[in-house]
């Protein structure tokens, strides 16, 4: 998928969770992406993080960095 589309999707998710109680927002975004995005999509967005994070909402960025630490997809090849 194009990075642009993945970024748009991640930002949409972040916008929703940004309105939820603050304590759970980052975890909410991370859990949503972990639950519904295929590993290929997750690897692609991690690759986008490595290429400058362009266009990502700050909450989406924090959530993806959080998710990346525990996501096996982050450690496997594309």
């Amino acid at each position: 998928m194009s990075a642009e589309k993945l970024v748009r999707m991640a930002n949409q998710i972040a916008v929703f969770f940004a309105s939820q109680p603050e304590a759970g927002a980052e975890a909410g975004v991370a859990d949503h992406i972990r639950s519904f995005w295929n590993p290929v999509m997750r690897r692609q967005i991690y690759a986008h993080l490595d290429q400058g994070e362009k266009g990502l909402d700050p909450l989406a960025l924090r959530a993806l960095n959080l998710l990346r630490q525990s996501d096996p997809a982050a450690r496997s090849e594309m």
Binding site: M1, S2, N38
Partner: peptide
């Protein structure tokens, strides 16, 4: 144990050649 591709994701991946 991993979620698969949704229909729009399948089509996007098809355009990417995967």
């Amino acid at each position: 144990a991993e979620p698969g591709l949704r229909i729009p994701n399948m089509l996007d991946e098809a355009l990417e050649g995967r």
